[in-house]
Computed example of a mutant assay.
Amino acid sequence: MPSPSSVHEHLKDILVRVVGCPADAVVPDASLKELGTDSLTIVELADELGRRFDLYLSDDTVDSLVTVQDAIDAVVNHDGATAPARSGRVPTALESPAPPVRDDEDVRRRRLLERLLVSFVLVGAAVGAILGFGGSALIDATGLGSVNLAPINNPTTAPSTTPTTTPAPTPTQTTEPDSDEPKPTIKVSKPQVAPGERFVIEGRFPELGEGAELQVQVKDEGSDWDDFPIETTTKSGGRFKTELYTSRTGDRQFRLLNKKTDKSTPAVTVQIG
C-alpha cells in the first residue's frame, strides 16, 4: 500500500501538469476545484493516479473527490474496485486493438458523455419552463391576448391615387474580409510515442487572443472527430500549450477547436506505438 506522502508527491506532479497550478498550493486541505480542476480534469487525475499506483478508482470514488486529502485517501485506502470488463467486439481492419491492461479512455469518455447528456436535458427543460411561463405572463400583462380587431369593410368608392416616385436606392459599400488575417498554427513535440507516453501539442490561435477555451479533439482512421478529455485556455497572443497521452495505438490525428466560433487549428498526426 503506498504511503500518504508518496501519493501526495505524485498528486502534486499530476495537478501541476494537468491544470498548471503552483506546486506549493497542493496542500491536503486545498479544494481541487479551486486549484483549477473541472469534471474532465478530475477524471484525468483519477486515471493518472490509477496508472501510477496500478489500481482503479470507481465512479463513486471519483465523484467524491473534493479536496487533495480526499484524493490521497482514495489511493491509500483503496476499496479494491476493478475496471469494468471489456466488450467482446472484434476490432476491424481499420482499428488497432487497445492494450489489454486498461480501457480507461473509453470508459471515462462514455461516462462523461452520459453525464453531459443528463445535464443538457435538465438545463433545457428548466429553461423551456421558464421561457414558457415568462411569455405567458408578458402576454397577460400587456393585454395582447384579449385585443379585438375591428372588422374590415369594403370601401364604397375607390380612393383617388396620386402617383408617387420611388427614390432610387443608395448603393451600399461592402468590405471584403481581410485575407491577411493570421491563421491558427499547431505542432507536436514528438511525432511518434509509446502507448501512455506523454507528448506536447502547442501553437497559436491569433484571432482568439487570451482566455479563450479550446477543446482537444482526436480522429482515428475511418472515424469522425471526437472530443478528447483535455481542454486548455489560450494565453497572450492566442498561444496555447497542453500535454496529453493516450494508450490507443495507431496513427491518431489531433487538433484544437474553439466551440464558440466553430473554428479549429490544422491537424497533426502522432503515431502511437
Rank of each mutant, 00 (worst) to 15 (best):
D59V: 12
S96D: 07
S39E: 07
G20Q: 09
P22V: 02
V68Q: 08
A71G: 03
A74E: 10
P22L: 06
V107S: 03
D70S: 15
D59R: 14
L32D: 11
A25T: 11
P99G: 12
I14Q: 04
V26T: 09
A85E: 15
E95G: 02
D29N: 13
L94E: 14
S39W: 04
D38W: 09
K33R: 14
V75Y: 11
S87I: 04
V27E: 14
G36S: 11
V66Q: 14
V90G: 02
T92C: 05
T92Q: 08
G20V: 08
L45R: 04
E105S: 01
V16L: 09
A23W: 03
D47C: 13
V16S: 02
T82I: 14
E34V: 04
A83Y: 03
G36V: 11
R102Q: 06
I42F: 09
R102D: 07
D70P: 03
A74V: 06
L35R: 02
L45C: 01
P28T: 03
R17A: 14
P84S: 09
N77Y: 11
A30V: 07
L32Q: 12
L45F: 02
D59S: 14
D47S: 14
R108W: 01
I14F: 15
H78T: 00
A71I: 09
F53G: 00
V76C: 10
V90A: 14
L40Y: 00
L49M: 08
R51I: 04
G80V: 05
K33L: 15
S39L: 03
E105R: 14
A30N: 07
G36W: 10
R52A: 13
V66D: 12
P22I: 00
V107G: 00
V19M: 09
I14S: 11
D38G: 12
D103T: 02
S31M: 05
N77T: 03
A93C: 01
G88T: 15
V76E: 09
A81I: 03
K33G: 07
S87W: 05
L49D: 06
D104A: 08
D60S: 14
I14M: 11
R109M: 13
D103G: 00
I14C: 03
A81D: 05
R89A: 15
V107H: 13
R102L: 08
D38S: 07
V76H: 09
C21S: 00
S31A: 10
S87A: 14
V27S: 11
Q69A: 15
E34M: 07
V16P: 01
D60F: 02
L57R: 10
A98L: 06
S96K: 12
P28A: 11
E48W: 11
A85F: 05
T92Y: 07
A83H: 09
L35Y: 08
V101P: 00
L32F: 13
V18W: 02
A46D: 08
R17P: 00
D24G: 07
R111W: 10
V66E: 15
